[in-house]
Structures are given as structure tokens and as C-alpha cells.
Simulated scan of single mutants.
Amino acid sequence: MKKGFLASYKGERYHIPEFWPYEVLHRPEERFNYLHSSLCSVIERTFGVWKNKWKILRNMPPFHIRTQGRIIVATMVFHNFVRAHEINNDIEHSRSTRGTSGRSERGHYDVMAHVISILDKPEMKQVRDNITASICADDN
């Protein structure tokens, strides 16, 4: 596993609403950005569900950073246990996903894109290019 931040391609469309439904994406960079954005949306929704289920994550008490990490891991374990056994899952899922769509604003993402560009290391650019090549290779 590589450490680093896997950024999107700059200068390409990124946000899901910028793409037309069922649009065929020919440029490899656009295809990567579309899939990257889709995955980020799933992850954000998952964190929303997780934070709604485990209230301690909303306002983390001022514990030592190691203790905070343990709380996070513990809630992951509990969350996965509950999901695996489907305990109150339907109720919690419907409660936590209401009103979550469209919360993110473009301005927020533009600021994040600037910060991300600073973190985008050459090694991670190579990882991104390799992923993009593998995405396009699936079509051949």
C-alpha cells in the first residue's frame, strides 16, 4: 500500500452533475475523474451514515489522539457488526440518508482542489496514471 493522496486530474470535469447521464467518456482522464468522483460520493455518504449512527463521532471529546483513534476504530467494528447482522439497519439507514444529497457546494470542492494539488506527489500521479491505464485497458 502506498501512502499519499490520490488526486483527480486537473483541468478535467470532475463533479458528477457535470457529466450527462449515459454519456460515453472517451478521454481517459475524464473517465478516471468520473469514477473517482463517484467513489468519493459513496465514501462521503458512508461517513454520513456512520456519524449519524455513532454520535460520539460528531463532536469528538478532547481525548488524546491515540484514544480518539481507538474510538474511531471501535465504531467501525461496531458499525460492521451491526451491518453484518442487519440490526436496526433499515431504520438507521433511512434516518441517516435523508437530506444528504446536494449538501456539498462547488466552492467547497474548489478550495479542496487547491489544497489537494499541493498534496499531489509525483509518486501518486504515477499511481493515478496506472489506474487510468487499467480502466482504459478494460475496454480493449
Rank of each mutant, 00 (worst) to 15 (best):
V42I: 14
A113Y: 03
N33V: 06
R58C: 14
S8V: 00
E86I: 00
A133P: 00
T132Q: 00
S101M: 04
L57G: 11
W50T: 00
M112F: 08
D138L: 09
I56H: 10
I91L: 02
E30I: 15
M112K: 04
C40I: 09
H64I: 06
V77Y: 04
I91A: 00
F5C: 06
R70F: 09
Y9A: 07
I71A: 12
E30V: 15
M112Y: 04
A133H: 05
R45A: 09
G4C: 01
R95V: 01
R103F: 02
V127R: 03
E18F: 03
I72W: 05
M1H: 11
D129Q: 06
R66A: 13
E92Q: 03
N88F: 09
E29V: 06
C136T: 06
H108Y: 12
R13M: 02
F63D: 08
S38A: 14
H64V: 10
H85N: 14
P28H: 10
G69M: 02
F78M: 09
F63Y: 13
Q126G: 04
K2V: 00
P62V: 05
R27D: 13
Q68F: 05
M124Q: 05
P28C: 09
N59H: 13
T75V: 03
F81W: 07
S104C: 13
R83N: 12
E18V: 03
I72L: 14
N140F: 01
D90I: 10
H85Q: 10
E44Y: 12
R83Y: 06
R31L: 13
V115C: 05
N89M: 06
Y22V: 07
V82C: 08
R13G: 01
S101A: 11
D138Y: 13
G99D: 09
W54K: 07
R13S: 03
V115I: 12
H79T: 04
C136I: 01
L25K: 10
F47L: 12
E18A: 14
A113P: 03
C136L: 02
R58P: 10
V115T: 01
I118C: 06
E92P: 02
P28N: 13
H64P: 14
N52E: 15
F81S: 05
T46G: 15
I71V: 08
K51R: 13
F47K: 07
I72H: 07
D110N: 15
S94W: 10
I135G: 00
V42Q: 15
G4R: 03
K10D: 00
S104E: 11
M60G: 11
S37D: 12
E92S: 06
E44P: 10
K53E: 15
I16P: 02
I71M: 15
M124A: 08
F81L: 14
I91Q: 00
I72P: 05
Y22G: 03
P62E: 10
I91R: 00
I131Y: 07
P62Q: 12
G4D: 01
